[in-house]
């Protein structure tokens, strides 16, 4: 039985070790901001932070998380998060919204490592996050906007 933290709180779940983190978050912890889109790490809708790095929760069995720190869209904090969400709202990135928790996670992951990404850096970091509404033009712009806010 794995013990880890989710958004800073200790969590021990009475579910099998092979349960994907995605479903543990949603079904057991009712943290529904993390979304299911494909189940095979192709779309990125389920992206969370594990030990500070973006991770696809749909292919992460909770048994591999002993001692890990998990952050979801409900609990993630910091200047990059505020900047990304402000930029997202600022230019109305979301359409249907289903992928956007994952997009925000990946964008935060990028900006934490690279505060001034180029278009190519953004493509490289964000190519794992599908947006079926194709809000990509605005995602790219919003990441630049967030980088500007962080710099300013």
């Amino acid at each position: 039985m794995a013990t880890f933290t989710v958004n800073g709180k200790d969590v021990t779940l009475e579910v099998p070790d092979d349960t994907p983190l995605l479903w543990a978050l949603r079904d057991d912890l009712r943290l529904t901001g993390t979304k299911f889109g494909c189940g095979i790490a192709q779309c990125g809708a389920c992206t969370v932070m594990v030990d500070g790095m973006p991770r696809r929760s749909c292919v992460t069995p909770i048994g591999t998380l002993d001692g890990a720190s998990v952050e979801t869209i409900e609990g993630i904090e910091g200047p990059e998060v505020e900047a990304v969400q402000a930029a997202w709202v600022g230019i109305d990135v979301p359409q249907c919204g289903w992928c956007q928790s994952g997009q925000v996670m990946s964008a935060v992951g990028l900006l934490r490592m690279n505060p001034a990404p180029t278009d190519e850096d953004i493509d490289n970091a964000m190519a794992g996050n599908v947006c079926r509404c194709a809000t990509y033009v605005r995602i790219r712009q919003a990441i630049h906007d967030a980088a500007d806010m962080l710099e300013g």
Binding site: I40, T60, P117
Partner: peptide, 25 residues
């Protein structure tokens, strides 16, 4: 991998069978 999407964004410490169908990552 790239900053923001390292190999470990998807690849964990072991093979993981998909739960929705055949195959594994």
């Amino acid at each position: 991998g790239a900053p923001g999407m390292f190999c470990t964004t998807c690849h964990g410490t072991q093979n993981v069978a998909f739960v929705t169908g055949d195959g594994s990552i």
